Simulated assay, not measured.
Amino acid sequence: MPPTTSLIWKAPSWPGMHYDAVRVGGELARAHRAHGIVEGKLAGLGFEQRLELAAEAWSQDAVATAAIEGERIDLTAVRSSVARRLGVGDHDGPNAPRSVEGLLDIMDDAVQQREAPLTHERLFAWQAALFPTGYSGMTKILVGAYREHAEPMQIVSGRVGRERVHYEAPSSAQVPAEMQAFLDWFNAETEHDNLVKAALAHLWFETIHPFEDGNGRVGRVLIDLVLARDNGETSRLIRTSQRLLDKRRDYYEQMERAQHGGLDVTEWVLWFVEQVRVSCEEASQVIDASLEKAMFWMSHQDKVLTARQRKVVNLLLDAGPNGFEGGMSTRKYESIGGTSRATASRELIELEDMALLRKVGGGRSTRYYLNISGWGPADTDHAESPPHDD
C-alpha cells in the first residue's frame, strides 16, 4: 500500500510569512510577563544556586530534545557532563557518549556564542557533532553538509506499509538557495519580537529539512539561540524542549498545519509562544522550590545534622510539597540512609526535636513531614493515618 500523502509542501516565499499581530500580542505580553517573574525570582538566589538550577534545566532539556526524536539518553551521564561544563554539582558520574557530548556542545554554543552570526559552516558543525561516527543508527549518512540525495525528502510517520507522508521537503538541489534565504533573514534585523522570531525560524528550518538527519535537534537549538539573544545565560532555565516533548503530538500537528497553510502562520506562532510562556511558568515553580529550600536551611543553619540526616531532609525538600508520597517512615529512612531500624528511628526523632520535621500519626503508622507550612497533611491533628509499614 503506498503511503497516505497529505498536502505536499511547496516552497513559498518564506520571508513573506505573516501573522495577526493583535492576536499574538496578548500571548506575547503574557509570555514576557512570565519571563520577567522568572528573572525577578532568580535575583533572590545566590550564584551557586542559579548555576545548579541552570545545570538541571539544561540536562533535562538535552534528554527531552533527544526523546522527541525517539532517542533515549542517560540523564545521569548528561548531568555529570553538564556539571563539568558549568563547574557545579557532581562531576564524577558516568561519561556521556560522544554523540551526547556533541548535543551538549551545540546547545552550549547556542548560548555562549549567541551574538555570533548563524552561517552554513556553523550549522554544518552542529549537525556533524550529533553524528561523530558518520552513522545514524546503522545507516551511514552525510554529515557536515546539506543533503544531496536525488530522492525526495519525505517526512513520514507510521509503521511500514501504513506510512503517512506529512509533507515533502524541497529537493536537495534547492536546499542551498533555500538555506541562504533563511540565513539572510535570520541574521538580519527584523521587526519581530524574539519569541516570534524563534517560532518562525524553527518552522522555516524544519520545513526546509536541510540535513539527512538531525534536523529536529538542530532546529530546537535554533530556538535556544534566539532565546539566548534575549535572555543570556538565564535562557537555560526555560526548558522549551521539555515542553515540546510533553506536547509532542500537538507540536507535530501544529507544525504540519503551518507548513500546509500558506503564509499566514498565526496559529503556529500563538501556539509556540504559549509553550514558551508555560515553560517560564514551570521554571518559576522550580525557582520557588529552590527559594523554599534555601530559606529552610537558613532558618536551621544552627542545627548540627549527620550527613545521613541532611541527605534525607534534602530528599524531602527536592520532592516538593506533595512530592514524597506518604511522608517519611522509619523503614524508608532505613533504606535511604543505609542504616539500622534503631538508628533510623533515633535520627528521625532528633530531626523532629530540632523542628526540621513534624510527626503525623503514631506507632507503626508514624510518618514525618518537613516542618514547612503547607507541606504534608493540612491538619496534623485530624489527618488520616497513613497505611502501615508492614
Rank of each mutant, 00 (worst) to 15 (best):
N231I: 14
G361Q: 03
P15H: 03
P321S: 07
G137C: 08
F296S: 10
R331Y: 10
A383Y: 01
Y135C: 06
A125Y: 06
A11I: 04
W14K: 04
L351W: 00
P15K: 04
L28R: 05
N322E: 15
A188M: 06
L370P: 01
K140I: 07
P377S: 05
L75F: 11
L75I: 10
A57P: 02
R84W: 11
S340Y: 02
H120A: 15
Q254N: 11
F131C: 05
A34Q: 02
Q113G: 09
F211W: 00
W9G: 10
D246V: 14
A11P: 04
T207V: 02
P3A: 12
G44L: 08
E253L: 14
N371L: 00
E101F: 13
R308W: 10
H192K: 11
H209M: 11
D213F: 02
Q60A: 12
V78M: 04
S385Y: 14
G93Q: 00
F186N: 01
A77L: 07
R308M: 06
F182Y: 04
E256R: 13
E292A: 11
G144Y: 07
A43W: 12
L305C: 05
A62H: 02
P97E: 03
H91A: 15
S345G: 13
A198C: 07
A383G: 04
T4C: 00
D184E: 15
L183I: 09
A110L: 08
T266M: 08
R277K: 15
V312Q: 03
V218P: 01
K10W: 02
R122V: 00
E206T: 01
A383T: 05
V286R: 13
G158W: 00
N314V: 05
A110E: 02
E168H: 06
G338R: 10
L51Q: 11
P170I: 13
V313N: 04
L317H: 01
L227Y: 05
L7T: 12
V78C: 11
V221N: 03
L123K: 08
P97A: 00
H382K: 15
M295Y: 12
L305K: 07
Y167S: 03
